[in-house]
Design a protein around this nucleic acid. Structure first.
Lengths: 296, 296
DNA sequence: GGCCACCTATAGATGGTATCTATGTGGGCC
DNA sequence: GGCCCACATAGATACCATCTATAGGTGGCC
């Protein structure tokens, strides 16, 4: 019952990651019909369509998704074993590393990461990608990003999670329009600026709804980056993580931080990668470096 | 740097397990020169001889041993993933299962195992092999045995270990020559029958040496099975695990068990298999069945 | 709505290579 | 020393993965 041609699985894995027959052909240095032919044999072997064409994507069927994890892991293990484990040297590594961040994480996390890189004398080509929280799991699984830091909780068994720090939310306002002391009525008569929850920060949305303050929201923006300038010019209030608020206070010394009157059952910020068996030495090194740099 | 032909690895793994090019050819349904050719390419690829011919064996080099573990595991994972996980049905399974035992384990462990098999309505072809303790690790790793129960401790990272029971050692003698009550001088003037430690039972050897009793050893045998008949006919004393002694008392009611005067820092009996990822459903099922049957 | 661009699937030809048969070679073992 | 068994090599062959060329779909855009 053994699989007769293990090489086909390599095509399968790359196709799952790239979701394009043509792209796979380029990556594997073969022509497109070759990949189509391999795909046909895979389909016959598994008795499943595996990838359905939907617009410009080859989207995996549930069977394909189910197969991908263990197979990808197994092939990664083979590659790691077979390729002479020449001790990884950070200083010599110049490859690409994809760091996925949701929301305003760059401001807090990128500086310490860059410092740590410099200390090790490492000069990888670091690429930071801003992701919606829903894209993180898919990006890591498919290998389009190497490492992600996000406030959203991802429970995928194929991913490796590590605690980075707790998130405490605070209110931020212009110094020209200070808030009364922290207490239940501190937001009476005030209006809110809200940042969309696409980055995973659902706490503000939740707390505003729970306390009947959604009517006081007068502006919703997509990006945290636009927040401080708006606050400076208005009397709006925004709820955001303390570490972000502190960065903004550094930019605009006129801003004021105020504690919230609600007990903060905060979601922690976590770091995610694939599971160890699927990581390259470079990725493993990068993970421990980032973890050391940003963990509280 | 990806391995270009994964199929070669299948040959590598089987060759490591069978240690014979010809046997691999038969197993994989190809001719012997085909395997030789594949082996040559593997040797070129890895820049290592991998298998050196020594007499009738192809013995693996250290590089080959180092490669085998992870690759075998990866291929097993692929097979497990790819082969439709049709729920394993013990009642329908009629394959072969190799149970490795050291020393006299059969007497104690086989009856409950057979009972458990009958209760599940399972009829596998169970084959019991008597092994020296040093052969256990190699047999499991190479897949020549599916499961082993032994008193020896094996610390291989590729193996899965589970506690079965503690071993308490006792003295066994003929009723015609009873021992004095348990105490430091209880063996004064008595002579010992010793069973060789090939099965892993090193405790008796150790305790006899430590207490200066090795001079009183007058007979050393290879097998526990010969012990009770000899005891019946002589005034010799033997040190052995209580569960073995009890079996012997069942055979020869004239035998007497006596506790030892030394605190028994006993080695536990353990059950070993390969790690989970490398097990077939049948092996996994068998392991839990055996464990349930023999665990104390 | 219909045309165009892009992507995947199929057809037929071809070359590479894994496999085969036949034979050489080298270590154990009596 | 010579026989036997097992692995290695040589040359022939057949298979099949890959190629080029083309057809079939699907979405986007005017």
């Amino acid at each position: 019952m053994a699989f007769t041609d293990l090489n086909q699985l390599r095509t399968f894995v790359v196709l799952y990651e790239l979701r394009s027959v043509t792209a796979v052909a380029e990556r594997l240095h073969v022509t497109q019909p070759t990949v189509s032919y391999t795909l046909r044999r895979l389909r016959t072997r598994f008795g499943d369509e595996l990838f359905r064409r939907e617009g410009h994507d080859m989207v995996p069927t549930s069977r394909a998704t189910q197969l991908f994890g263990p197979i990808q892991e197994a092939l990664a293990q083979i590659d790691a074993t077979v390729n002479e484990t020449e001790a990884f040297d950070p200083a010599k590594f110049t490859g690409e590393l994809m760091l996925g961040l949701t929301s305003i994480g760059e401001q807090t996390f990128l500086p310490p990461i860059m410092t740590a890189l410099a200390q090790e004398g490492a000069r990888p080509h670091l690429q930071v990608e801003r992701l919606d929280s829903g894209e993180v799991e898919d990006g890591l699984t498919r290998g389009t990003i190497d490492l992600a830091i996000t406030v959203s909780m991802i429970g995928s068994p194929g991913l490796w999670r590590s605690h980075v720090r707790a998130v405490e939310y605070v209110a931020l306002v212009s110094g020209a329009h200070p808030l009364p002391p922290t207490g239940p009525g501190m937001f009476a008569g005030r209006h809110f600026l809200r940042v969309s929850a696409r980055g995973g920060h659902i706490f503000p949305l939740q707390v505003l709804t729970d306390n009947g303050l959604m009517q006081q929201v007068v502006l919703t923006v997509e990006e945290y980056a636009t927040v401080p300038a708006v606050l400076e010019a208005t009397d709006l209030v925004v709820l955001l993580p303390r570490h972000v608020a502190e960065v903004f206070c550094g930019w605009f010394p006129g801003l004021l931080i105020a504690d919230l009157p609600w007990p903060g059952q905060s979601t922690p910020v976590s770091l995610y990668t694939r599971r160890d068996a699927s990581l390259t030495p470079a990725q493993r090194w990068f993970r421990s470096l980032v973890l050391g740099a940003v963990r509280e």
